[in-house]
Amino acid sequence: MVAVGAFLLTLAALLPLYVYDRVALLPAAAEFDVRMVDEGAWYLNTSTWSWTEASALTRVTRVDASAHGGDWSAWEMSVDTSVPERMIDHWSRRVIVDRETGRAVNCCGEHVDGDHAVRQAGLVFFWPPGAGEGDRSFYDAELRAAPAMEFQGEEEVAGVPVRRYTQTIETTQVPDSARPVPAGLFRPEASGTVTATRWIEVDRTFWVEPVSGIVVNVHETRSETLRPQNDSGEAPLLHTELAMVDQQVSAYAEQARVRSLLLRSLDSWAPWTLAPLGALAVLAGLVRSRRATSAAGREESRVPGDTGVPGEHGRVTP
């Protein structure tokens, strides 16, 4: 009983102090995608250079993660924005992710669309498990910056308690986005081409299950324009209000529910159950051992062959 109790007490200490930290790490290897859709988007059709309404616009972020040492993971990411007729935008990214914090690590061939001079920072996608309510920097690869994700409050998504964070990016020029476009986009009477840069304005919202750090839902409103480098004016390039598809929201919510239950068990429920049981087992073992020792002592104090009945082994002298 003492050995069983000692094992339970040791296990109660190891679960939150060691096992939890290892289980809570982001997976070293994984493949997943985040699919967002808008059925009323507008975009600049570059085949006709006309402002066109899309029956459906889809933005898919694909991640292929592999182990990179014991505590890091290498993410190969691609982002495709398309309408039913064509692909309208594509870029890729490689980032090394710290599996404990979920933050980017400057290392090992990182790049954004082939630009190896970038230094990525902030969260990549997941939040750290068990993180507090404070704001978090979140890296926007297109802008090469990590504006803050601001905590807005607690809500519920698909039956799962979540925290809502928002990131607002004012109209900002996208680095290395200069390209030739028809001058008529900015002045109807103009001919030829001009060099224009891309500008974006983004409002995005993440709903995060706090115990696991899993992102359950994402919404994003995005407006993009083109502006000539050496002139005034602008032309619309894209306007969309994207939302994660319902099937993914349900799937991520269930994944977060299960993982949250596991982490809560390791961090609090199991230790608080095992520790009292272990203490009781040790106490019971010590009590039984003491009783056994006392009984053995009484047996040894008796005369060999003496049954304890007076006069049984001889005549009692009056």
Results as ranks from 00 to 15, higher is better:
2 V>F: 04
6 A>L: 15
12 A>V: 06
13 A>H: 04
16 P>L: 04
17 L>W: 12
22 R>E: 15
22 R>G: 05
23 V>A: 07
25 L>V: 05
28 A>I: 09
32 F>D: 14
32 F>Y: 15
32 F>N: 07
33 D>S: 15
37 V>Q: 12
41 A>M: 09
43 Y>S: 00
43 Y>A: 02
44 L>C: 08
46 T>E: 15
48 T>Q: 13
53 E>L: 08
58 T>W: 07
60 V>R: 13
61 T>I: 13
63 V>Q: 11
67 A>M: 08
67 A>W: 06
69 G>R: 04
74 A>K: 03
79 V>F: 01
85 E>Q: 14
90 H>S: 14
91 W>P: 03
91 W>G: 10
91 W>S: 12
94 R>Q: 12
95 V>A: 12
98 D>S: 02
107 C>V: 09
107 C>D: 13
109 G>N: 11
109 G>H: 05
111 H>V: 08
112 V>C: 07
116 H>W: 07
117 A>V: 06
117 A>D: 15
118 V>L: 07
121 A>Q: 15
122 G>N: 08
122 G>W: 02
125 F>V: 10
131 A>M: 05
134 G>N: 09
134 G>V: 04
136 R>D: 05
138 F>N: 02
139 Y>C: 03
141 A>E: 14
142 E>V: 13
145 A>P: 00
155 E>N: 10
156 E>A: 13
161 P>F: 01
163 R>G: 05
163 R>I: 09
164 R>G: 06
165 Y>S: 00
166 T>I: 09
168 T>Y: 11
173 Q>I: 10
182 P>M: 00
188 P>R: 00
188 P>W: 00
188 P>K: 04
189 E>Y: 03
192 G>I: 01
193 T>L: 02
193 T>S: 11
193 T>M: 09
193 T>H: 07
198 R>H: 11
202 V>Y: 03
203 D>K: 10
205 T>I: 13
209 E>N: 00
211 V>S: 08
214 I>Y: 00
216 V>M: 07
217 N>P: 01
225 T>V: 15
226 L>T: 00
227 R>H: 10
228 P>G: 03
232 S>F: 10
232 S>G: 12
232 S>V: 11
236 P>S: 06
238 L>H: 03
238 L>F: 06
239 H>G: 11
239 H>W: 09
241 E>Y: 02
245 V>F: 06
245 V>K: 03
248 Q>W: 09
248 Q>F: 09
253 A>D: 02
256 A>F: 08
256 A>P: 02
256 A>C: 07
256 A>S: 13
264 R>V: 12
265 S>I: 04
265 S>G: 15
267 D>T: 09
271 P>G: 05
271 P>S: 08
273 T>L: 15
273 T>Q: 08
275 A>L: 13
275 A>M: 11
277 L>D: 01
280 L>E: 01
282 V>A: 02
286 L>R: 08
286 L>Q: 01
289 S>R: 15
299 E>D: 14
301 S>Y: 05
301 S>N: 11
301 S>D: 14
305 G>L: 08
306 D>Q: 12
307 T>N: 14
307 T>D: 15
309 V>H: 07
312 E>N: 06
316 V>D: 07
